[in-house]
Lab assay of single mutants.
Amino acid sequence: MSDQEAKPSTEDLGDKKEGEYIKLKVIGQDSSEIHFKVKMTTHLKKLKESYCQRQGVPMNSLRFLFEGQRIADNHTPKELGMEEEDVIEVYQEQTGGHSTV
């Protein structure tokens, strides 16, 4: 019986991991920090939209990076291997420009 009891508790931990929340720091170019608590399985588009709304800027005017890689709207913290207190960097999107060649 103890084996049966242990097995469901392991499964519960697996389920808990799926719905687990982590805190992420979003740091802007001006070094301002906003902290977000997100589920591991939530699409990061929600975090990006919330950040842009707080900053009063359109979402397409900023780019969000985690460990140097651009974050897509459909990425989740779990897919990117994010952990508690990880940092997302935000930069002004640069458009235009010309070749110097």
Rank of each mutant, 00 (worst) to 15 (best):
F66A: 05
S31I: 08
E85T: 07
S32G: 12
P58V: 00
F36M: 00
Y51Q: 03
E67M: 14
T10R: 12
G19K: 13
H43R: 15
V38A: 07
T42V: 11
H75D: 12
E18Q: 12
E49V: 08
R70E: 15
E49D: 07
E67H: 03
Y21K: 11
E11I: 03
K17T: 15
A72H: 09
H75C: 12
T41A: 10
P8R: 12
V101T: 10
E79H: 00
D15W: 05
M59K: 15
L80K: 04
Q4L: 14
R70D: 09
F64C: 04
G97L: 07
L13P: 10
P77Y: 01
D30W: 03
S9C: 12
M40C: 10
E18D: 14
E18C: 05
E89F: 10
Q29I: 15
F66T: 02
E93R: 09
K25A: 06
Q69W: 06
G28H: 04
G96T: 03
D15H: 14
A72P: 07
Q69F: 08
V90I: 06
A72D: 09
D73E: 03
S31Q: 07
P77T: 02
I34C: 04
F64D: 02
L65W: 00
S31K: 02
I27H: 15
I22P: 07
C52Q: 03
G19Y: 10
R63K: 06
Q29K: 15
D30V: 03
S9A: 13
I22N: 02
K48F: 00
P8Y: 13
K46C: 03
M59S: 07
E93D: 10
S32F: 06
G81W: 07
E89Q: 05
V101K: 07
Q53V: 09
Y51K: 05
S9Y: 10
E84Q: 14
C52E: 03
G56F: 07
P8T: 06
K78E: 13
H98C: 07
D73S: 00
F64P: 03
L47W: 01
S32A: 14
K7D: 08
D3N: 10
G68C: 04
Q55S: 12
I22C: 15
I34V: 12
H43F: 08
V90K: 02
R63M: 07
Y21M: 09
L62A: 00
S31F: 15
K16G: 11
G14A: 08
Q55C: 13
N60P: 06
Q29N: 15
E49R: 14
L65N: 06
K23C: 06
E33Q: 08
Q53C: 01
T76E: 00
K78G: 15
L44T: 01
K7Y: 09
G96D: 03
E85G: 15
S32N: 12
K7M: 02
L80G: 01
N60F: 06
D73T: 04
L13Y: 12
P77I: 00
R63P: 00
L62R: 15
E67K: 05
P77E: 04
H98L: 09
D73A: 00
T95C: 10
L47G: 03
A6C: 14
H98N: 09
Q53H: 14
K45L: 11
E20K: 13
E84D: 11
N74Q: 07
N74D: 13
G81F: 15
E84K: 13
S99F: 08
H43Y: 09
E20H: 09
K16V: 10
H43W: 05
E83D: 11
E18I: 10
Q55A: 10
G68T: 02
G81Y: 01
E20G: 13
P8N: 06
Y51H: 02
Q53D: 14
G56D: 08
C52G: 03
E11H: 10
C52M: 02
K37S: 00
M82D: 03
M82V: 02
Q92I: 08
T76F: 00
Q29V: 02
L44D: 03
S31G: 10
L80F: 01
Q94N: 05
Y21W: 11
E5V: 14
T41F: 00
N74A: 11
L47K: 01
I88A: 03
E83A: 14
K25L: 00
D3T: 15
L62M: 05
K78T: 05
R63N: 08
K78Q: 08
E67T: 00
I71D: 03
K46S: 06
E11Y: 06
G81K: 06
D73Y: 04
Q92L: 06
E93K: 06
T100C: 08
H75A: 11
V87G: 07
T10P: 11
A6Q: 11
Q55P: 07
D86M: 05
K78A: 10
V87K: 11
L65R: 02
E85Y: 14
Q29A: 10
K17E: 14
Y51C: 03
K46H: 12
T42K: 06
Q92C: 13
G28Y: 00
